[in-house]
Amino acid sequence: MSAAGWFIVLLALVGANLPFLNQRLFAAVPLKAVKKSAWLRIAELIVLYFVVGALGFLLEARAGNRFEQGWQFYAITFALFVVFAFPGFTFQYLVKRR
């Protein structure tokens, strides 16, 4: 696997956990509410999936060998993105804090 492939995998790991590790929108915009709702975190996760996917598409096109993908590819990569989000989800919702 090339360096660009590993970069996308690491970016997907960071992007998938970003909604769960802070209370800001996309880690930049402060919200007036004390805590983000779960629906906002899911929406942020979906947007970040498309951002990471677009960056991967650009890197693949820049390498010169862009491949056509069917719906199966996007279903599998979204499922993998959700699996990558598990550590952040666990930290946000399952770890008890004192």
Rank of each mutant, 00 (worst) to 15 (best):
S2K: 05
A3L: 11
A3V: 01
A4Q: 12
G5Y: 11
G5M: 13
F7A: 15
F7R: 07
I8G: 10
V9A: 15
V9E: 01
V9F: 12
L10N: 03
L10Q: 03
A12Q: 09
L13K: 01
V14K: 06
V14D: 05
V14S: 12
V14G: 12
G15F: 03
G15P: 04
G15I: 02
N17P: 01
N17G: 11
L18V: 12
P19T: 00
L21K: 00
N22P: 06
N22Q: 08
N22S: 15
Q23R: 07
F26K: 04
A27E: 02
V29C: 11
V29S: 05
P30S: 04
A33R: 05
A33F: 00
A33D: 14
V34G: 12
V34A: 15
V34C: 08
V34R: 11
S37R: 11
W39K: 05
L40M: 12
I42N: 07
L45K: 04
L48Q: 09
Y49L: 01
F50L: 13
F50Q: 03
F50G: 08
V52S: 08
G53K: 00
A54H: 06
L55V: 07
G56Q: 01
F57C: 09
R62D: 09
A63S: 14
N65W: 11
F67P: 10
F67I: 01
E68Q: 13
E68A: 14
Q69H: 15
Q72W: 06
F73L: 02
Y74I: 00
A75Q: 13
F78N: 02
A79I: 10
A79C: 14
L80P: 04
L80D: 05
F81P: 07
F81W: 05
F81C: 10
V82K: 01
V83W: 06
V83R: 05
F84S: 02
F86S: 11
P87S: 09
G88N: 03
F89K: 02
F89D: 01
F91R: 09
Q92K: 13
Q92L: 14
Y93Q: 02
Y93L: 08
V95T: 07
V95H: 05
V95W: 02
